[in-house]
Amino acid sequence: MSEQPLVIIDELKIDVRLTRAKRLPIVDTATFDVKRGEIIGLIGESGSGKTMLCRSLVGTLHRRGAYIASGKLVFDGIDLVAAKGAQWSEIRGKQIGYVPQSALAGPNPVMLIGAQIEEAILQDKNFPKSKVKERAIELLNIVQIRRPEVVMHQYQHELSGGMKQRVMIACAIAQQPQLIVADEPTTGLDVTVQAEIMRLLLSIRAEFNTSIILVSHDLPLVNQICDDIVVMHAGTTVEKIPSKDITHAKHPYTRALYDSRIDLVEPKGKLTTINGQPPTVGSWPAGCRFSEWCNFVRDECRVPQTMPIIPLGPDHYTTCIRYTELDK
């Protein structure tokens, strides 16, 4: 129906308060939309600001002393930058389901698994109490947990990593939210479980037309199930690209991320690794923040400036000013 994207993130800047006077930018800046029913892969190395960006969507930045410094953040027509308590309680757990990064520490250790799922279900005040148990088991079945009746009566320390992850997903989809934010739902799990979780997310989208923001380090893995890929580097979204076009990425960092994996599979390919340490928060280079690692760097890249967003198609942009040179 509505042509409006579900989520609009536009030049969003997130700062963290270090001392009374000192502020440090952590996300600077992020720009992308999430359409209804779309799966977005949010990729970037450790410390690039992915988790902070996700937390801004559920309003828990303040727990890390961070806040939205500027920019636009809209969810389903609601301005999240100005959202107040009442609006958050409408959004949290109902419109947005969140699978935290350390899902292994996500379940409450002093509540039975069943109680947590039922709690998630009962966020809908009108849900009939008599049907809660039934629905909880149904959810555990959706996330493919075997013997759900047993798991309901277990504590989190009795579950494996993959099962905890599934429980967190079950809680996140309890209200059939419009958006699921899954922060690295496969990190630390073995490859077969990773693939199962990916398939699970796909089937949830297929069934409920849920939009999903899927955070990961692993570009080749998420590229298989995402519609678009957003690449983050040093707090900036440096490129947004449809996943089918990933081999024609227009930012050297995206290419490096993709190739460093391909090389592992096809030794013939030219070795492209990201050398050295990623830039740390607070010591980002002026101009293009990738300039110190980029093979295509020229002096013009180091001129202090905010890198422009260069549109290349309806769902494709880059922030590399020399993108035309990449394939020469």
Binding site: V58, R63, G93, I96, Q101, A105, E119
Partner: peptide
């Protein structure tokens, strides 16, 4: 307070009383 599951509770939108007992005091 800084545990991940507490944040999960906030994001799930757990009501005040429940939150106080199950997410702060009991653990």
């Amino acid at each position: 307070k800084d545990e991940e599951f507490v944040e999960t509770g906030i994001i799930r939108g757990v009501g005040r009383r429940r939150f106080f007992w199950f997410y702060i005091l009991k653990p």
